[in-house]
Simulated assay, not measured.
Amino acid sequence: MSDRRRLNGPAGTTSPPVFALSKSSTKSSQKRTRKPNELRKIFLQTGVVPSATGSAYLELESPPESKPGLLNTSSTLKLSCSVHGPKPLPRTASFSPNLQLSASVKFAPFATCVRQGYIRDSTERDIGMHLETALKGVVIPDRWPKSAIEIAVTVLEGEDDQVDGDRIGGVGLFNLLAGCINVSMAALADARVDCLDLLAAGVGAVVPGPGKPFRVLDPASIEHDLILASCLVGYLPSRDEIVEIWSNGSVSNLGRDEDIGFDGLVDSAVAAARGSQTVIKEVLIESLTRTEVGAEKLPNDGMNDVDMNT
């Protein structure tokens, strides 16, 4: 007699299917068609969240169609940022002469190939820490005593790396952080928060070439089989200052060529940041012009979008 309250399994034994990863799925399936100093197209729009003080949406150009494989990879970024504040601190909080800035980054569950959890992990905390450090270097804190501002970045689609199909890391993590800095700067400007300069971030890398290694701007892991070293900088163009720097890899064993040394790697990241700053500047000027004409923030109808092809 069978138990009616229990779903019994099959009488025989079964084995789950096992799929072997092909070479095309573990390595880059397409080559870089852009020039070494050419950036991907950037789509940026402000005022996408009406309930927030300031908001912005950033998206990078989608790569060409790659060869089908068991493990699909992506080099596209889709980020949304909302700024809340400045707002007064609670009455129970101690007096602070400076603005209390906090930044957080959260992956959507569907942002990467590996499904993300709802609790913040170490990767999200690290990105949020670097983002907060970069933004504290551009915001003027003494304008809002005993006030706080919250910056929340949601990763709708993250860039995957070719690292055994594991979590994102390496240059993909750098591109993600650079996108978070750029979209946060646009959202801060949309919230009319006073800043020292227009902060922008960029990524540079050293990749092997047919003759010798060379530098590239805005690298994507899906376009390179190997990345020897990479660097991210948060750059203030008008003040010529770097407020955030993060490097990965070693360039000491590549010879004494200054072009592929650490200084050259930083210079390539700064050049990429200047290109991103051009897009942010054009978007904010166009948004400000539309606001002055209408005497208030107008609804986003796609007219204040900027598409860049460096």
Score class of each variant (00 low, 15 high):
residue 104 S to I: 04
residue 26 T to F: 00
residue 90 P to S: 06
residue 272 A to H: 07
residue 266 V to S: 02
residue 140 I to H: 01
residue 278 T to M: 05
residue 189 A to I: 00
residue 105 V to S: 08
residue 154 T to N: 07
residue 93 A to H: 15
residue 251 V to N: 14
residue 213 P to S: 10
residue 134 A to T: 04
residue 75 S to W: 04
residue 261 G to W: 13
residue 169 G to Q: 11
residue 179 G to L: 08
residue 60 L to S: 15
residue 14 T to N: 01
residue 233 V to C: 09
residue 185 M to I: 06
residue 242 I to A: 02
residue 81 C to A: 06
residue 44 L to W: 08
residue 29 S to I: 02
residue 191 A to E: 13
residue 233 V to L: 07
residue 6 R to M: 12
residue 229 A to C: 09
residue 147 S to W: 00
residue 268 S to C: 15
residue 222 I to N: 04
residue 247 S to Y: 02
residue 296 E to C: 13
residue 200 A to Q: 06
residue 194 D to V: 13
residue 307 D to N: 07
residue 1 M to G: 12
residue 103 A to L: 14
residue 242 I to H: 03
residue 179 G to N: 05
residue 203 V to T: 01
residue 2 S to V: 09
residue 186 A to F: 03
residue 124 E to G: 03
residue 178 A to Q: 03
residue 271 A to N: 12
residue 253 N to S: 05
residue 13 T to P: 08
residue 301 D to F: 03
residue 142 D to F: 08
residue 243 V to G: 05
residue 268 S to I: 13
residue 123 T to N: 14
residue 78 K to E: 09
residue 55 S to F: 00
residue 293 V to D: 10
residue 229 A to K: 07
residue 80 S to W: 00
residue 106 K to T: 11
residue 72 N to Q: 12
residue 227 I to M: 01
residue 83 V to I: 14
residue 283 V to P: 12
residue 39 L to Q: 12
residue 211 G to M: 13
residue 36 P to K: 03
residue 36 P to Y: 09
residue 176 L to Y: 06
residue 24 S to L: 14
residue 114 V to K: 12
residue 48 V to W: 09
residue 274 R to C: 14
residue 291 T to M: 14
residue 183 V to N: 00
residue 179 G to F: 02
